[in-house]
């Protein structure tokens, strides 16, 4: 691979970051208080719900059964707050790798 295509790729990623992460932050948008409140309360919930569906569907494409079982275990541990993030991660990962090996 020539290095110009690598430089092009790096430039594309850098510009992407500027467009989607930096631009919304440096532009002085004048939002109404109602919209601001909506962005601080409702929008994050929507983003996290989208994360969940995206991750479940992406992982299901790789290993449907083990992914569903492991992610349900993780979500349950998170919902019940049993043991914190470490235990949640451990429960999800151990069950996934055991099920995929089996």
């Amino acid at each position: 691979m020539n290095s110009s295509s690598i430089i092009t790729a790096i430039a594309a990623l850098c510009l992407t970051s500027l467009l989607v992460r930096v631009l919304p932050v440096i532009c002085d948008f004048q939002f109404s208080p109602r919209l601001l409140r909506w962005m601080e309360t409702t929008l994050p919930i929507a983003v996290f719900l989208n994360f969940i569906v995206y991750l479940v569907l992406q992982e299901a494409q790789i290993a449907l059964g083990p992914a569903l079982v492991a992610l349900v275990i993780t979500a349950t541990l998170a919902y019940l707050n049993l043991g914190g993030l470490f235990v949640g991660m451990l429960g999800g990962c151990v069950s996934y790798y055991l099920l995929t090996a089996w």
């Binding site: 309360t41 919930i45 991750l55 992610l71 979500a75 919902y79 993030l85 996934y96 790798y97």
Partner: peptide
């Protein structure tokens, strides 16, 4: 054969569920 990206998905699922639970509580 080993899916190395799974732990990252697990962490995001855990954090997302926790965040949703905290943000929707009583609302």
């Amino acid at each position: 054969d080993i899916h190395l990206g799974f732990p990252a998905s697990v962490v995001l699922i855990y954090l997302s569920v926790s965040q949703i639970k905290r943000r929707v509580a009583g609302g």
